[in-house]
């Protein structure tokens, strides 16, 4: 079970696409937040987070994503999650993330919803 956290990012159609792999804990959450901040300060307001390769997450790591959703919501932006494991999706639902963030099956679907 490979759980080493890695994060990759790209910008497509003015959207920041963040792709995680491995365990999203406090360290992983902070890395996501730092990468987001770099793009947010440059004006990016649409974000896609692909969690396909993160089957294990914790609430501290996810709290960084709540912070990001709050910031985007305040700035008129939006975040969409994709490729969620059912258990992670349930966790994010309990944490209220889908009140302001979206969810789609794939990155392409997310990009279409943000267009």
């Amino acid at each position: 079970m490979e759980q080493q956290f890695t994060l990759t990012s790209e910008v497509r159609n003015d959207c920041l696409i963040l792709v995680t792999s491995g365990y999203v804990n406090n360290v992983g959450g902070e890395q996501i937040a730092q990468e987001f901040s770099r793009h947010f300060e440059a004006g990016t307001r649409k974000v896609v987070v692909n969690l396909a390769q993160s089957k294990v997450v914790n609430s501290i790591g996810m709290s960084f994503l709540i912070d990001i959703v709050d910031q985007l919501n305040d700035a008129g932006g939006k975040l969409v999650f994709t490729d969620l494991d059912p258990a992670v999706e349930k966790m994010l639902t309990i944490m209220g993330l889908f009140q302001f963030a979206g969810k789609e099956k794939s990155v392409d679907d997310a990009l279409a919803s943000l267009a």
Binding site: K55, V56, V57, N58, S59, D85, P86, A87, V88, K90, M91
Partner: peptide
């Protein structure tokens, strides 16, 4: 065991 993993982690 996906949900069990989250419960144990928390």
């Amino acid at each position: 065991i996906g949900e069990a993993n989250i419960l144990i982690t928390e």
